[in-house]
Simulated assay, not measured.
Amino acid sequence: MTVAVVLFTSDLRLHDHPPLRAALAAADEVVPLFVRDPGVHAAGFDAPNRAAFLTDCLRDLDASLRRRGGRLVVRTGPVVREAGAVAAECGAAEVHTAAGVSGYAQRREERLREDLGRRGVALRVHDAVITAVAAGAVTPAGSDHYAVFTPYFRRWSQERLRETCPAPRTVRVPGAVRGEPLPSRDELSGLSPGLPAGGETLGRERFARWARSRMAEYEEGHDDLAGDVTSRLSPHLHFGTLSPVELVQRARAR
């Protein structure tokens, strides 16, 4: 029985998730893993509103996996340590994850590759999961980045996006891998009134409503704050409950 680990980071969804698809194709069983990283707290990026939205995303992801026969394994601690420990517990041959774009994510990837390599486990990193185009794929001649938005956007718009993939029908998870209880909003305080709920289910519903009713108005009205024609999808894109590739393709189709 072969096993692979899928390390979720900023891609908390099942629809159009290349790391999960690749892991399911490579192994008989898959461990969907999310690590609650103390480095995020140390950097001050776990403010109550963000923590609440993340909590919703994790609970929705777990529910979606359970409808497919699986579950989300949540661990707390340094990501490299916990990912390596899970891989050792289940005898995984591979760990799949999305390519990050921040310096923190890239350093984490380097340490993860080194640690897993010592364990004889391969790290498979997938581009264009949390971005529509792989980081660094769009650059001008003679430089490593664009300094002006318009030429960048013109060049970016010419990029051919990868094909999207549907959510899996079945996810088999080894029963022996231990996880922690899912976090709850009830554990948090200081939340803003009216804070929207997170999760892939609600994110997809929000995009569908906006695409039907307000997308056509966005080009003319995106600077009109009172007009309120923006999608309000920023937190969903930040936490990866929606696929940037899928959204761009659906928007282009309309």
Rank of each mutant, 00 (worst) to 15 (best):
L202N: 00
A52K: 08
G175R: 13
A208M: 05
E114R: 11
N49F: 00
V229S: 08
D127W: 03
E180M: 11
P244L: 08
A105W: 01
G199E: 09
L7I: 07
R172G: 03
R107A: 13
A52V: 09
G77Q: 09
G69F: 07
R21V: 11
R206C: 10
S189F: 00
R71M: 07
H41C: 06
V95S: 06
D223M: 13
G142L: 13
R119M: 10
A122R: 15
P174E: 09
R250W: 01
G240S: 05
T170F: 06
L161D: 12
T170K: 08
A47Y: 00
D16C: 07
L202H: 05
C90A: 15
L161H: 05
A132H: 04
D62L: 12
V80C: 07
R118P: 00
A63Q: 11
A87F: 07
F45G: 11
A176S: 13
F34S: 03
A135F: 04
A134G: 15
H222K: 13
P32S: 07
A137V: 08
T55R: 03
A105S: 14
L20Y: 01
D11E: 09
T241R: 02
T139H: 05
P32F: 03
V173R: 04
H96F: 12
V177Q: 10
L72H: 02
T230R: 13
E29P: 00
R13F: 01
N49G: 05
P193E: 13
A98M: 08
F153I: 12
V229H: 07
G221I: 01
V148I: 15
H96A: 08
R50T: 09
V229T: 04
L188A: 04
T230W: 01
L58Q: 04
R172A: 14
V229N: 01
P19Q: 10
V31H: 01
T201E: 13
A197K: 04
E82W: 00
V125M: 09
P166H: 07
F34M: 01
T170R: 14
P168F: 06
T131S: 15
G117C: 11
F149N: 12
L242C: 03
G120M: 06
R204W: 05
A88R: 14
T164K: 06
F45T: 04
G84P: 05
V79A: 07
N49E: 15
R250E: 10
V125R: 03
A99V: 09
R252T: 04
A25E: 14
S234C: 02
P78I: 08
L123C: 11
G69N: 06
L24A: 06
T230Q: 11
E110M: 06
D115I: 00
E159C: 15
R107D: 14
R160D: 13
P32L: 02
G142A: 09
Q106L: 15
L61C: 04
H236Y: 12
A122K: 10
F239Y: 10
L188Q: 03
R107Q: 12
A93N: 06
L116H: 00
H236Q: 05
T97E: 10
H15F: 07
I130R: 14
